[in-house]
Design a protein around this nucleic acid. Structure first.
Length: 589
RNA sequence: CGGGGAGUGGCUCAGCCUGGUAGAGCACCUGGUUCGGGACCAGGGGGUCGGAGGUUCAAAUCCUCUCUCCCCGACCA
C-alpha cells in the first residue's frame, strides 16, 4: 500500500513564478513535474503514475488494431535525406554528430524509420494491411517551448503508421484509428471534439484533429452547435451570401478612375459609392520556397486578392503556397507593382500561369469568393488611380483560385444555417492520410495481385501523451487544485485520517485503505502526522478524484466520502466504503 | 529569430533608483503545546545576490559583455 508519509510528493503552497496556464501551475504545485530546462520536464512519482495510466489505455486500445514496435530515437542523416526531410525540417530537428563526425538527428516522428522497415520487408499485397505503432519520446527543437507540458522539446508520443495496398484500404485503416482515438479519449475522460484539419504542407488529403476546448490552447477551432460541422480555423469555411445579391454595376470594360488620396478599402468604396464587397483587396507577400534536393531557399512574390471586406487567413495562405511567407517590404512592393502601396492591383503584371513552370514569375492567388465575380474595383498600380469593371480571368489571370478567407465567429455554417462559433483548443491527437509521399521518396514497393509493383499507401496517426494529462487538468480545476478522471489519476482514492495519533482513527483508516486495496482500487493512505487542514489542502490539490475522510465519526462506524469534482460529502458506513466506491466508479466486484 | 519581462537561501518576493559588507513570509531541523480546512511558542541551519569583466576605498546596487528562464508573434502531439 502506498503511504503518503513515505512518498515523494513535493507540493507547493504557491505556484512557481514562471507558470502562466492553469495546468502548468497545478502540475508543478502538486509535485507531478519539475522543469529541467525550457520545454524539458521530469515526471515525479504522481506525474509518472498518471502518465503510465494514460499510456496503458493508449496501448490497450492500439493493440486492438495494430502492433507495437520499439524504434530508436537516434537516426542517421542518410535516412532523413532519403525522405527529403533533412533539408525541409530546418531548425526544428535536433541534430548532432558522433565521434567520427557523422551527422545524426533525434527523431521528431518515425515515418522514415517505419518506411525503411516497410521497404525492406514488405513485399506482397498479401502482407497488407499493416498498422505499426510505438509509444516513445520525440524531440523537437521548438522555436518557443511554452505553457508547461503543452509545448515541449521532448515529449511522449504514440505514433502509428499504416500501410495499405490502395486508397480503399487506407480508408479502412484511417477509420480504425478514428474509432480507436475516440475510445482512447473517452476512456481518458476527456471532453473532446473532432475537427477537420489542414494536412499541412506535407500533402495528404483527409485529416482530423482531436481537440479539447481550453483557453490555454494554441489552436482556433470553428464549430457549429446546430450540426456536426467542426474544423480547424486553418481549414474552416463558412457560407457566403450569393454574389448575385451584391448587384455589381458596370459594363465589364476596365476603366481607370481618379481616386486622389483614397488609399484604404473603406475610403475607395465610399468615394466611388459602392460596397467594399465590390472592391478587391490586394495583399503582397514573399514566399521562401525551398528546393527539396538542395535545401536552398529562394524568395518569390506571392500576391493575394481578397474581397474587400474579407480577411486573409495566413495559415491557409501558407498551406496554399506550401512554404512560409512574410509580407512584402516597401522596396519589394515598388519593384513588382511599380506603384505605392494603397493603389495596388493585379492588372498589367505578368503572373505565373503554372507555379513550377513559370518559376521566375510572381504567383497570383485569388480567393474563391472572387471567382465568377464581375465589375470589381482594384488599385491601378498608379498613384491616385483605381480601376473599375474588372473581371478575374479576363482582365488578369490568376495562377490559382484558393480558399484563403478567414472565417469569423457568427458567420453561417457551411452545412446548415446556424452561425459558427470559434474557440481556442489544444490538439491532443491528429490522424491523417499521408498518401505516397514516403513510399515514393524512399522507394517502398510491393507486388499486387497481378504481380505488378505498386507503392503502399500510408497513413500516420499521433497522440500526445502529455497533452492528454494537460488537457484533463485544464478541463477540471478550481482555485484549490484539480481532479482527474479516475482512469488516469495517479490514485483513485486517498484515505485521510484526521489525526493519526488517535489510535481508533488511525487503525480505521489503515483498515479501510487495506480493504480498498484488496478490492482492487489504487489507494494512497495519508498517514502523515499533519494537521487535517494540511492533508485536505494537499488532497484537493493533487488530482485524486475521491477522498475518504476518517474522523471522529469512526466511533459510530462512519467515515466521509468526498467527491473532489463537486465537493459533495457523503457519510458512509465503514463496512460500505468499498461498495460505495465501486458504485461511483461504475465497477463491479 | 524579432518584440517585452525576470534572474537575490528549496518556494514567493523585498532590497537596486540614491553603492557602505544581505532581509521577510513560507518550507526545513530540534524541543514543547496543538489537532476537521495550509497552527502556535522557543531555538537553529541554509545565500558564489545567474556568470564574466570593469568603475570604486567599497558593488546585489553603477557600466559592458554573456548565459538562463518566462510572456507575445511564425510551429503542431
Amino acid at each position: 500500500m502506498h503511504r503518503w508519509s513515505e512518498a515523494f510528493i513535493p507540493t507547493l503552497r504557491e505556484a512557481p513564478a514562471d507558470a502562466e496556464v492553469a495546468s502548468h501551475k497545478f502540475l508543478v504545485r502538486s509535485g507531478y513535474i519539475r522543469q529541467l530546462a525550457a520545454g524539458i520536464y521530469s515526471y515525479l512519482f504522481l506525474g509518472n503514475r498518471s502518465f503510465n495510466k494514460i499510456v496503458a489505455i493508449v496501448r490497450e486500445e492500439m493493440d486492438r488494431i495494430g502492433q507495437e514496435f520499439y524504434l530508436p530515437a537516434l537516426h542517421p542523416r542518410e535516412l532523413w535525406e532519403a525522405s527529403g526531410r533533412w533539408g525541409l525540417m530546418g531548425e526544428n530537428l535536433f541534430r548532432l554528430k558522433d565521434r567520427k563526425g557523422a551527422d545524426l538527428c533525434l527523431g521528431m516522428t518515425e515515418e522514415e524509420v517505419m518506411t525503411s522497415i516497410a521497404l525492406k520487408d514488405l513485399r506482397s499485397y498479401k502482407q497488407l494491411p499493416q498498422i505499426w505503432y510505438q509509444i516513445a519520446p520525440k524531440f523537437r527543437d521548438e522555436p518557443r517551448p511554452r505553457s508547461g507540458l503543452l509545448r515541449v522539446r521532448q515529449f511522449m508520443m504514440k505514433d502509428a503508421y499504416s500501410f495499405d495496398i490502395d486508397a480503399a484500404g487506407l480508408d479502412v485503416s484511417y477509420k480504425k484509428h478514428y474509432d480507436t482515438y475516440c475510445r482512447i479519449f473517452d476512456r481518458c475522460g476527456l471532453k473532446y471534439m473532432v475537427v477537420e484539419a489542414d494536412s499541412g504542407a506535407m500533402g495528404g488529403k483527409e485529416s482530423h484533429e482531436f481537440m479539447v476546448r481550453t483557453p490555454a490552447g494554441e489552436d482556433q477551432i470553428v464549430s457549429c452547435d446546430g450540426c456536426n460541422y467542426a474544423a480547424n480555423l486553418e481549414k474552416a469555411t463558412s457560407r457566403l451570401e450569393p454574389w448575385g445579391d451584391l448587384a455589381p454595376e458596370g459594363d465589364g470594360k476596365p476603366l481607370l478612375v481618379h481616386t486622389p488620396g483614397q488609399k484604404t478599402i473603406e475610403d475607395v468604396a465610399k468615394f466611388l459609392g459602392v460596397s467594399p464587397k465590390n472592391k478587391i483587396k490586394t495583399l503582397a507577400y514573399m514566399a521562401e520556397e525551398k528546393d527539396e534536393k538542395t535545401g536552398k531557399t529562394k524568395l518569390r512574390g506571392v500576391v493575394v486578392l481578397m474581397r474587400g471586406d474579407h480577411q486573409l487567413n495566413e495559415a491557409k495562405l501558407n498551406g496554399a503556397v506550401g512554404a512560409p511567407t512574410r509580407p512584402m517590404e516597401e522596396s519589394e512592393i515598388k519593384a513588382l507593382f511599380k506603384s505605392p502601396a494603397g493603389y495596388l492591383g493585379p492588372v498589367g503584371i505578368e503572373w505565373a500561369r503554372d507555379r513550377k513552370k513559370d518559376a521566375d514569375k510572381p504567383v497570383l492567388f485569388v480567393d474563391k469568393a472572387l471567382e465568377g465575380r464581375v465589375n470589381l474595383i482594384a488599385g491601378a498600380n498608379q498613384e491616385d488611380y483605381h480601376m473599375k469593371n474588372l473581371t478575374p480571368g479576363k482582365d488578369f489571370h490568376p495562377t490559382a483560385y484558393a480558399d484563403l478567407r478567414a472565417v469569423t465567429a457568427g458567420e453561417g455554417c457551411p452545412n446548415c444555417s446556424l452561425s459558427l462559433r470559434i474557440d481556442t483548443a489544444v490538439e491532443i491527437g491528429h490522424i491523417f492520410k499521408l498518401g505516397y509521399r514516403y513510399s515514393e521518396s524512399m522507394g517502398a514497393r510491393v507486388l499486387d495481385k497481378n504481380g505488378k509493383e505498386v507503392m503502399p499507401i500510408m497513413g500516420c496517426y499521433g497522440i500526445g501523451i502529455e497533452r492528454i494529462l494537460t488537457a484533463a487538468v485544464e478541463q477540471s480545476n478550481d482555485e484549490n487544485g484539480f481532479w482527474l478522471p479516475a482512469s488516469i489519476a495517479p490514485f483513485e482514492v486517498v484515505v485521510s485520517p484526521v489525526n493519526v495519533k488517535d489510535e481508533a482513527v488511525r487503525a480505521a483508516a489503515e483498515d479501510i485503505a487495506k480493504q480498498l486495496e484488496a478490492a482492487g482500487f489504487d489507494v494512497i493512505l495519508d498517514d502523515r502526522n499533519e494537521r487535517p487542514g494540511v492533508k485536505f489542502k494537499d488532497a484537493d490539490l493533487v488530482g485524486i478524484p475521491f477522498r475518504i475522510t476518517v474522523g471522529n465519526k469512526v466511533t459510530e462506524g462512519t467515515v466521509e466520502l468526498v467527491l473532489r469534482s463537486t465537493r459533495e460529502v457523503r457519510d458512509v458506513r465503514i463496512t460500505a466504503v468499498v461498495e460505495s466506491l465501486r458504485e461511483l466508479l461504475g465497477r463491479t466486484g
